[in-house]
Write a protein that binds this DNA or RNA. Structure first.
Lengths: 198, 198
DNA sequence: CGAGAAACCTAACGATCGATAGGCAGGTGG
DNA sequence: CCACCTGCCTATCGATCGTTAGGTTTCTCG
């Protein structure tokens, strides 16, 4: 038996533990319907003790939202700078986006549903990441239209439509393994690039 | 001056007034963060008086969710039964879907964000409408694949992707006039049917 | 015009919320 | 070994929540 006396956790450990536990509860019951005591119960401490790690409930929500806006900007967007045609770069991005979303599924659900609950400053921060991500996707569409690979569509509307389709995956996908993503990545990539028409 | 003494409103008028006022507040601040007194203020009555029209706060949310699930089933889906090729019928549906969404924009925002807050029975009702709508869209995709108009894709995944893209419009569209929808309908229809590729 | 229904009111309930104050214990560096 | 910091505790605050009880005003219809 590897059982030990419950070791005291470091601050960094607790923070990530609280964030992921809160994300799971927020995702299933909604941000405002969850109390600090509910979050505390999930990690085995008392409600008031949460304030040693976060200064408010909204700070926890902010941390969750950051992982689904800052991380994609820092991890997915560099793929758009790699060499290759716009088609190849967009294909790579779609795969990375869906796989990241699968990896942080509950956080995406919270981020998409509870953003209006953020404070002004925090809300502005998150919106800035989202807006930048959107702009970079639009830019690769513009590049593809210039090169003649893509049809002439309104690049802003197309980028919004594509991202809505990708982010919507978090609402219905089951499973968390990378294998579970393969079908969705293949289908959505084909749909975005070629549409339904035979 | 047409100003009259404030006339007492009929029950039916008040109900729709409450629902649309509540939808607007729920959309901007979130369901759980809004109190019955906030809704009452918006229609010029006291918090307790709301209970003469709805038996609970959740009943108001349920009424909002119904308008964005029942109405599309009853108004949009019959278009799929009209004569025409799958391409024509899907095109018609996309236009009707986006225009209905534009007409009930705030209600869509609430319906997509606050569905988890519904009670078991009400939640099941709403999910049933959504599931049926999804199935009918998938069916027209299957019909198109059989006729050779559409490529061979997983029809379930494609239907989910297309509906995510259409419903996502409620998150960023501005304006409520039918003219504002024309560009979005044209762009999204082209994207779904033909994809990005030239 | 009068009676009853309908719409709305004031007042208040128990519960629960986010957050604070102050104390206790266990791990750590001098 | 002791002082200290840190992670967590108990206890509690004031505010606000959804909802109910019971009275008052306005409309409607015979």
């Amino acid at each position: 038996m590897e059982e030990r006396v419950a070791r005291r956790k470091s601050s960094a450990e607790r923070r990530t533990e609280i964030v992921s536990a809160a994300a799971a509860i927020f995702a299933s019951r909604g941000y405002a319907a969850v109390g600090m005591r509910d979050i505390a119960d999930a990690v085995g401490i008392r409600g008031a003790s949460l304030y040693h790690h976060f200064s408010s409930k909204e700070e926890i929500l902010y941390a969750i939202c950051l992982t689904v806006t800052q991380e994609p900007v820092e991890q997915n967007l560099p793929l758009l700078d790699a060499p290759g045609t716009p088609t190849e770069r967009l294909t790579t991005l779609i795969g990375a986006h869906i796989r990241h979303l699968l990896h942080r599924r509950v956080e995406y659900v919270v981020g998409q549903h509870e953003r209006p609950a953020l404070t002004g400053e925090h809300r502005a921060d998150i919106d800035q990441y989202l807006h930048y991500y959107n702009r970079r996707v639009r830019d690769v569409l513009v590049a593809g239209m210039r090169s003649g690979e893509f049809r002439e569509l309104d690049p802003g509307l197309a980028a919004l439509g594509i991202l809505d389709m990708l982010n919507g995956v978090s609402g219905w996908i089951r499973g968390e393994a990378d294998d579970d993503a393969d079908d969705v990545v293949a289908s959505h990539t084909a749909l975005v690039l070629g549409g339904l028409r035979a």
